[in-house]
Design a protein around this nucleic acid. Structure first.
Lengths: 214, 214
DNA sequence: CGGGGCCTACCCAGAAGTGGGTAGGCTTGA
DNA sequence: TCAAGCCTACCCACTTCTGGGTAGGCCCCG
């Protein structure tokens, strides 16, 4: 890539630990500059408007405004800025959603620092970058098209339901009230025409809404 | 094993004494780093999301979320992390449940420190480790192939649960009282070490207890 | 500007599940 | 014969889910 200037990067992650760690690591590279950090997508957007980073490295799972939804906002307001999603999951839903919403890259959090740096360099040069395995998931998803009528948030809730969480626990996990989790659960059932929690779980497993065990 | 970096370990046990003792002991080994500790599986999972330990050493008996049920959550959310169960019991139920849910190792609490260290090293390198005696229990269980510890009646009930039936409906379907269905449900959970209905359904689907839908 | 979708949040009453028990009748095998 | 395992059944207090609402704020699209 060209070295005429540092690549300015904005980090967005609701885990302070990840944020700090990532910043520390990236700053050991001379050609990368962490221009800012944020704990929420909304905050990140506000900051980005001012510093206009070349690359945004954003966690996909965040309370309030999810990373996926934030991609579009960045693209609308800052078309020059390239967005790379950071995720712990190689869930097809997340990956294809990210791509469809305009992400320039998708990197799993467990990859090496070098790979993240490589992703940043690549997208800064106008390319796209996907972790190994991510691309496969994307291709596999194309085959099974047909698509869920579910909203991103509903998929979040469904994932929690499969994990066996109660409404209260879902609320805690996603940073919303249990009442809201309950509403989402009701909407899921209504929308899918499924009356039972058991049915929801089978639906999720059958449709790859959540990554299967094993 | 490779010594290029410390093996990061997360300890989860609801006995503070065990936790502290284990930590102190493990930290006398240069190539092992106790990256975190937790008193509950849920807390451990939250911590693990951030520190992404290579190895999780987790007690099998814990209030709220049981260790066995937690294995699946770890495997879903942190596929890179290897889970080793720590237990005072060499019960077949526990051992085979642990293995079936994806544990990479099973160590009895009364083994020597060296053996625990060995287990950590082994699973960090992608292997599996079982205390002597544990392996025997596992094999003995395998002999009975099919390997469900479930009674025929319990499989009936499990099938009904997967179908989304309530205890009352199960009772009607099988010609027993709802109270009996309830008892079977409770026994299933206890026997499999699974705390939630969601977990039971995934167990059933994973183990072919019921034929999959679609 | 208006409508619609989405996310959030709360109300309520009734149904259901949870997690402890206990317990009797039955079969099976040592 | 006697213990063990299984199936059956019920008790209780507590929590959670269910299924019906309503509603405000936000954003996008026509």
């Amino acid at each position: 890539m060209n070295e005429r200037a540092k690549i300015s990067v904005l980090l967005i992650d609701n885990h302070p630990l990840v944020l700090d760690g990532l910043k520390a690591v990236l700053e050991t590279f001379d050609h990368i500059e962490v221009a800012g950090t944020a704990g929420l997508a909304q905050t990140g957007l506000d900051i980005a408007r001012q510093i206009r980073p070349q690359v945004v490295l954003m966690d996909i799972n965040m309370p309030k405004l999810s990373g996926i939804d934030a991609i579009e906002l960045f693209r609308n307001e800052l078309p020059q800025t390239r967005v790379v999603m950071l995720s712990m999951h190689d869930s097809r839903e997340y990956i294809s959603s990210s791509v469809m919403h305009g992400a320039a890259g998708y990197v799993l959090k467990d990859v090496s620092t070098d790979e993240i740096v490589c992703a940043i360099e690549t997208v800064a040069n106008g390319g796209t970058y996907f972790s190994s395995g991510v691309f496969d998931a994307l291709m596999g998803d194309r085959a099974g098209e047909g698509s869920d009528p579910l909203t991103p948030r509903e998929r979040d809730i469904l994932g929690q339901i499969v994990a066996g969480r109660s409404n209260r626990e879902i609320g805690e996990a996603l940073g919303i009230s249990s009442a809201t989790a309950e509403t989402h659960r009701k909407n899921l059932k209504k929308k899918l025409g499924i009356a039972t929690t058991a049915g929801l779980i089978r639906y999720a497993l059958d449709h790859g809404v959540v990554s299967k065990v094993g």
